[in-house]
Amino acid sequence: MESGKLEIWSDLKGKVVLVASAVQDLGFALSLSLAKRNCRIVLAGDAAQTRSVSQQIKSALAISSHGTVSELDIVREVELDLHRAQEADVDAAVNQAWHAFGRIHVLLTCSTAPGSRNTPMEYTEGEWDETMAVNLRTPWLLTKSIARQMQQTGHGGSIIYVSSVTGLGRGYFPGVSVHGAALAALHQLAVSLAMELGKYQISVMAIARGLTESDALPTLLTSEQAVKMASRIIPSQRWMNPGEDLEGLVIFLASDSAKYSTGNIFIVDGGQTLPRPRMRSYI
């Protein structure tokens, strides 16, 4: 930070953020951004994945601070199967995460993108169950467990769901009916929870992110076709960069400055989901 420059997000210092992400690159990017602002991070998810992300964060911080990885006690890991965890598993993981640094100030969940784009008739019961589990049931169980502890301590906190534009009424894409239904339900859950948990000083928000080049729709195309499509139909003329484009909003929502923003679904998509008739002017 330059001398004399105001640190806007100084109230993030010392906050503990539990990050539950089924999207490894997004979980890494957002966790690193928060860690750079002096948050402590607890990663929840697959053991091998969380260890990998933890090491990447520590290495990046060591480079930026000229320290060593062993000196950076800023990231911990908690094993949790985000696809199949039951309530007892979630409670145990949250309890472990809570005691890692003394408490949890923020829960940040990152929903997974659909692994395949199937028509409603092709979607299997197993795919339905997994999609609903990782995108709706596990975030709900995590929120329930953490909110209970936040209520008991009397300090409150923040819940942030990073979802996708496929859960929006203006974000329909072929082949994502079940995924969109799960995220639409997550958005409704966020609003309802904000109303009911506000009295405990717990704020709840969601971010509907735009599609990235690694999501199911763009990956059906060649790299050249994906770039061409973005330049033709997206007002910002590019697909989303999951770290850079979400960083500022996540930092804000994790801060105390965002407490009065509870109950909102924020759209960060570069205009991808603007009404199609309007978007035809870009084709």
Rank of each mutant, 00 (worst) to 15 (best):
G4K: 10
K5I: 05
E7K: 11
I8K: 15
I8L: 14
W9I: 00
S10I: 01
L12A: 05
K13G: 03
V16M: 06
V16R: 04
V16G: 07
V16I: 01
V19Q: 07
A20E: 02
A29R: 15
S31K: 11
L32E: 11
L34S: 01
A35C: 04
C39G: 02
D46V: 13
A48H: 13
T50P: 07
S52V: 08
Q56I: 01
A62C: 04
S64K: 13
H66R: 04
V69H: 06
L72V: 04
D73N: 12
I74G: 03
V75N: 04
E77V: 15
L80K: 08
L80D: 04
A85N: 12
Q86E: 15
A93E: 05
Q96W: 06
A97L: 07
A97R: 01
A97I: 01
A100N: 11
A100V: 12
G102W: 09
G102K: 05
S111P: 11
S111K: 08
S116H: 13
P120R: 06
M121T: 15
E122M: 09
Y123P: 01
T124F: 07
T124R: 10
G126D: 15
V134P: 09
L136G: 09
R137W: 03
P139L: 09
W140M: 06
T143P: 00
S145Y: 05
Q152D: 05
G154A: 10
G157P: 04
G157D: 01
S163H: 03
S163T: 01
S164V: 01
S164T: 06
T166R: 13
L168R: 13
F173C: 05
G175Y: 15
H179G: 13
A185W: 14
A185Y: 12
H187G: 12
Q188V: 15
L189R: 04
A190R: 05
S192N: 15
L197A: 08
Q201N: 14
I202R: 10
S203Y: 01
V204Y: 00
I207G: 03
A208V: 10
T212I: 02
D215K: 09
L217N: 06
L217H: 08
T219Q: 09
A226I: 07
A226M: 04
A230T: 00
I234E: 02
I234A: 09
R238Y: 02
W239C: 01
W239A: 02
M240T: 12
P242A: 07
L246E: 07
I251C: 02
A254P: 03
A254C: 13
S255P: 13
S255D: 06
K259I: 01
Y260L: 14
Y260W: 14
I265Q: 04
I265N: 12
F266Q: 10
I267N: 06
V268R: 12
G270M: 08
G270Y: 08
G271V: 12
L274G: 06
P275T: 13
R278W: 09
R278H: 06
S281T: 14
I283V: 15
